Simulated assay, not measured.
Amino acid sequence: MAEINVTPFVDVMLVLLIIFMVTAPLLTAGVPVNLPDSRAAALDQDQEPITLSIDETGRTFIDETEVPEAVLPDRLAALAGGGDQPRQVFLRADRTLDYGRVMRVMGELNRAGLNRIALVSVGQE
C-alpha cells in the first residue's frame, strides 16, 4: 500500500488545537488584578503593547516583572526608546486602589513619552 493514512495526524492536530485554545487565555494575565467592568470593545493592535499592572497592594509590574516605584521612571524612559511612534501601554490597575496612585503612574508614563495609554477593564457581555 503506497498511501499514507492522514486521519491519525488530523486527530492529533485537532486535539493540540483544543489544548492551545484552552490554555492560551490563561497565559495572558500574569499579575492577578481585580479589574473594573466596562462595555468598551477590544482594541486592534499593530505591535506588541507594554502591559503595566498595579496590584491591590500598590506594587507596580511591567509585564510580569515587579518594578520598585523609585526605578519606574527610568524603566519607562528605556521602554519609550524615542521611536517614531510611541508604544501602546495597557494599564491594568486593581479597582480597590487609590485614584491618586493610578494617576501618579499615568503621570510617569506621560513624562516618559508613553502617551498611548489604554485602561484595561473586564468586558461585560
Rank of each mutant, 00 (worst) to 15 (best):
residue 118 A to E: 09
residue 34 N to E: 10
residue 125 E to P: 15
residue 6 V to N: 12
residue 5 N to W: 10
residue 59 R to P: 04
residue 117 I to S: 01
residue 64 E to Q: 12
residue 25 P to T: 01
residue 79 L to W: 03
residue 94 D to N: 04
residue 8 P to G: 06
residue 114 L to I: 01
residue 120 V to M: 05
residue 50 I to T: 06
residue 87 R to G: 13
residue 60 T to I: 14
residue 122 V to S: 15
residue 72 L to I: 03
residue 73 P to M: 01
residue 85 Q to P: 05
residue 51 T to A: 10
residue 107 G to W: 02
residue 87 R to N: 06
residue 94 D to T: 02
residue 41 A to G: 12
residue 27 L to F: 11
residue 46 D to S: 15
residue 89 V to Y: 00
residue 121 S to D: 08
residue 64 E to H: 15
residue 91 L to A: 00
residue 14 L to Q: 11
residue 70 A to T: 09
residue 67 V to D: 02
residue 23 T to K: 11
residue 121 S to C: 12
residue 101 R to A: 11
residue 27 L to Y: 11
residue 112 A to C: 04
residue 86 P to A: 03
residue 72 L to V: 03
residue 2 A to R: 10
residue 64 E to A: 14
residue 114 L to E: 00
residue 120 V to F: 00
residue 12 V to P: 06
residue 107 G to M: 04
residue 89 V to P: 00
residue 103 M to P: 04
residue 40 A to P: 02
residue 30 G to E: 08
residue 49 P to A: 05
residue 74 D to V: 07
residue 107 G to Y: 04
residue 108 E to A: 09
residue 7 T to N: 10
residue 104 R to M: 06
residue 71 V to N: 12
residue 62 I to T: 03
residue 4 I to W: 14
residue 5 N to R: 10
residue 118 A to T: 15
residue 89 V to M: 00
residue 14 L to R: 09
residue 100 G to C: 04
residue 39 R to Y: 14
residue 91 L to S: 00
residue 71 V to I: 09
residue 3 E to V: 12
residue 81 G to F: 04
residue 66 E to A: 15
residue 17 L to P: 02
residue 71 V to D: 15
residue 24 A to I: 09
residue 96 T to V: 11
residue 42 A to E: 11
residue 8 P to E: 05
residue 43 L to N: 10
residue 102 V to T: 05
residue 1 M to W: 13
residue 39 R to K: 11
residue 37 D to T: 08
residue 10 V to F: 09
residue 9 F to P: 05
residue 43 L to G: 08
residue 95 R to C: 04
residue 39 R to C: 08
residue 14 L to K: 10
residue 59 R to I: 07
residue 48 E to Y: 11
residue 113 G to H: 04
residue 79 L to D: 04
residue 65 T to L: 13
residue 46 D to P: 11
residue 89 V to L: 00
residue 107 G to R: 06
residue 80 A to Y: 06
residue 105 V to R: 00
residue 33 V to A: 04
residue 4 I to P: 05
residue 89 V to I: 02
residue 7 T to A: 14
residue 18 I to C: 14
residue 69 E to D: 14
residue 74 D to P: 03
residue 88 Q to A: 13
residue 112 A to I: 01
residue 17 L to C: 14
residue 82 G to C: 02
residue 69 E to G: 06
residue 25 P to A: 01
residue 114 L to S: 00
residue 119 L to I: 08
residue 54 I to N: 00
residue 7 T to D: 07
residue 64 E to W: 09
residue 2 A to Q: 13
residue 125 E to S: 12
residue 36 P to G: 03
residue 3 E to I: 10
residue 111 R to I: 05
residue 18 I to P: 04
residue 120 V to E: 03
residue 51 T to G: 04
residue 44 D to A: 10
residue 86 P to H: 01
residue 68 P to D: 13
residue 52 L to Q: 00
residue 13 M to F: 14
residue 33 V to Q: 03
residue 48 E to T: 13
residue 69 E to V: 08
residue 3 E to A: 14
residue 5 N to T: 07
residue 100 G to M: 09
residue 46 D to Q: 13
residue 25 P to M: 02
residue 3 E to T: 15
residue 18 I to M: 12
residue 92 R to F: 01
